[in-house]
């Protein structure tokens, strides 16, 4: 048996690469589902509720991305364990994806500030 068997946690390391865009997707799905559920319910002051929900979901998504970024940058928690070069490469990719996903989260949430909730297109 070779030394290659030691210290391998491959699936988790690989998945870490995809956390940031997955957060973006979860945020999109959550705000879309929230609007669908709110609009399916009895008519109330949809606008305020929706604005708060989008705000909370967006804040949560951004917080998750910040935590991911901090954990990636923190010394001693290098991503992933193997050689230095690959580790640095993984770290940079993770950070770039976090930045891109953060921008995506804000960009997706932005329309809530401008458009009425539950109104159908003309």
């Amino acid at each position: 048996m070779s030394a290659a068997f030691e210290g391998i946690r491959p699936l988790g390391d690989l998945l870490r690469l995809f956390i940031a865009p997955a957060i973006w997707f979860a945020h999109l799905g959550a705000v879309y589902a929230a609007e669908a559920l709110i609009c399916a319910g009895p008519p109330r002051s949809h606008g305020d509720t929706m604005s708060w929900i989008v705000f909370l979901f967006t804040a949560a998504a951004l917080m998750c991305l910040v935590i991911l970024t901090v954990r990636t940058l923190r010394p001693g928690d290098r991503v992933p364990p193997p050689s230095g070069q690959t580790s640095a490469w993984f770290r940079r990719i993770t950070l770039l994806l976090a930045v891109l996903s953060g921008s995506g989260v804000i960009w997706t949430a932005l329309p809530t500030a401008f458009l009425p909730v539950c109104s159908s297109a003309p």
């Binding site: 609009c39 932005l110 329309p111 458009l115 009425p116």
Partner: peptide
């Protein structure tokens, strides 16, 4: 006929 706000989420994503 999907609500305009929902459309805008996906419009934004499409541009992104």
């Amino acid at each position: 006929g999907i609500p305009a706000l929902s459309l805008s989420f996906f419009s934004a994503a499409s541009m992104a």
